[in-house]
Nucleic acid binder design. Structure first.
Lengths: 196, 196, 196, 196
DNA sequence: CCCTAAACGAGACGGTACGTCCGGTCTTAAT
DNA sequence: ATTAAGACCGGACGTACCGTCTCGTTTAGGG
């Protein structure tokens, strides 16, 4: 998969290169065609790592997967500052939907969420990841509220739930696309909702 | 689990009692404490059934679980007719949240959705179930639109996604409760949004 | 290895063909060149069997190996009846040494005895196998005693220990050959000893 | 296990105290109850030593165990000089059986012999150890032969094989005790055998 | 009214993945 | 330079679960 070049040992300290290889391979396999199963054995083999090196640092397969996914997803989603709620929210959701819109990413996130339901360790990672993303979006909304674009008494957490709820619902059920058009529609709807 | 009383054979016709026992046990185990794993073997044993009897009628484990879940969830959610969107939507969401609010039901749905991500048969069942629920809610919204309570050009499917998105998002992540209060807040938010 | 022809299932009864394939492969691997490790996985693979089929019927790897070995070794060692102790004992030991003299068989027995020291199940099997072989040789000696060829008061069990002791000692340490010449020398020595 | 007192580094010279601790711990663990597995890790930990310190001086685990065992067993077995074969042989075998008769020692030797079958280094050590013990016993027999107590043409190596064969056979199979009574019976039998 | 075909309970089976254990190698940091 | 510490790769272990298969039993319904 990767790791053709010999990876040197690092003695009694954790080998960061091995950690990287494991997480990279995990994401690669999760987003793959599905012909290679996403197994601890396949991850270890593709990363050129012993299974024990995985279990030394992660408590379960789900934990590896979730850490790998959480590290990727959410990175590189800029928080725009256009001066208006509709602009900010639209930009943010477009970027989010675009990042998630790839077939591979949808596959990764679907399986990550599934794993989080079975593996308590994965669930913990998932909750932490979700909380992080929610905080970012809530910050965006709070800025708009401070500008007076949100009617007082609006439950911002509920707005956040609606945005991410629609996203995850579509990821998991697959009944509707996740494109820029949909992102804009959602942004307009939520903006109208909070306008008061 | 159940099935203490001997279940008589039915000769060369499908044994309806066995089918019932299988689906009942499946839901029972899915909603259990998790100390009993939900496997085909445990289902078969608890239902007093041979594994082949399961695989004769369902193509995979996921199909059994999803059929069991779909049969339960969604039943007994009345569609109110109060004459106003807020009343109808509030009533519907309160009933839905109440049905889902039990710890056991949340567990059942969590695992059902997880299974739907892995097992194509389960995924198919899940999509059909989801489509059914969406149709009900969309019907409620269309009635309101016909009454003039919804501004023209509103994307009703997006509203449906927002409602069920919030529901599933909270079921799967578990970061917020699912009570009547939340149902009402969501109903008010969506009503405000579509009012135009 | 073997088993190119499809092996039919036998329903809810133990599959005797699978049992045979497992034991045959075990002996084959034990006596092999050593380039294929004797592993539950390799045995299962070579026998065309799932690992669980092995663990369903044997408690541990050692138990499989010992049953396989015990079934082979000791079979086809005839108990001669020449009318004299020297003739009987010589014939028996020659046959025994010849059966064991092959490089492959030595390898099998060495590893079997080693396994018996580590795996309690294997130890139990080994003791039973050893007891069986001892009983045969002791019977031979008792016949000679009844003919008056053994001085009264001779401890026949000690004589048996001397014969099999030499055999196993040489198998395990490998410092001396196991040929017909050695068998005859041992038979003469023991005959002289018990003559009185 | 031991090593509570800090053992000082000795810079660039081999640390003799570490070597001692390793061998002592090895024997201690081999003779233990079996609840602590005898692995390189447990030996290193109990000896307060790094694994590399073991592998710097021994080529494999088996080599450590065999050196530890060979160093102990065979020490303190005096070669008596009573003037008669029966006396000398009886005394030697009684001392040998007594040294081996302890439950712990039997366990140590059992596992050492098992290791010798798997690990070539251990096998080499074992053969050397065995050769040493054989030479001692053969010397005893040669003295008797020189005194005329052994009939000409007797194969002394075969006699040695019988003595140690009985010993090891009983150690490994455990079907008979190893006490002074048994030592005497064996001495009498062998004396009668070689008397001619 | 019997006889055959289908459904059933039971459970062995081949296969795949899990998470643990251990042997032997390697690097770091301390002495 | 040697040591204690311990991470690392490789690979075997024994368990769990899936979906398939066969057996022997039971009943319904066609001849």
């Amino acid at each position: 998969m990767t790791g053709e070049t010999r990876r040197p040992h690092t003695g009694r300290r954790r080998n960061e290169a091995a950690r990287r290889a494991i997480l990279d391979v995990a994401v690669e396999l999760l987003g793959g065609t599905g012909d290679t199963p996403v197994t601890i054995d396949t991850i270890a083999a593709a990363a050129g790592v012993g299974k024990q090196t995985i279990y030394r640092w992660w408590p379960s397969k789900g934990a590896v997967l979730l850490e790998a996914v959480a590290e990727r997803a959410g990175a590189d989603i800029p928080v725009p500052d256009t001066g208006s709620l509709l602009g900010d929210l639209g930009g943010f959701l477009r970027a989010t939907f675009r990042a998630v819109g790839h077939e591979r990413t949808v596959s990764v996130l679907r399986h990550a969420m599934a794993e989080a339901q079975r593996d308590p360790h994965a669930g913990e990672h998932m909750r932490a990841f979700i909380a992080g993303r929610r905080a970012v979006l809530r910050g965006l909304l709070e800025r708009a509220r401070d500008r007076g674009e949100v009617s007082p008494g609006t439950d911002l957490d509920l707005v956040v739930d609606q945005a991410y709820g629609v996203l995850w619902y579509r990821i998991l059920v697959g009944h509707a696309p996740l494109s820029a058009t949909e992102a804009d529609a959602l942004a307009r709807a939520l903006t109208a909702q909070v306008r008061g």
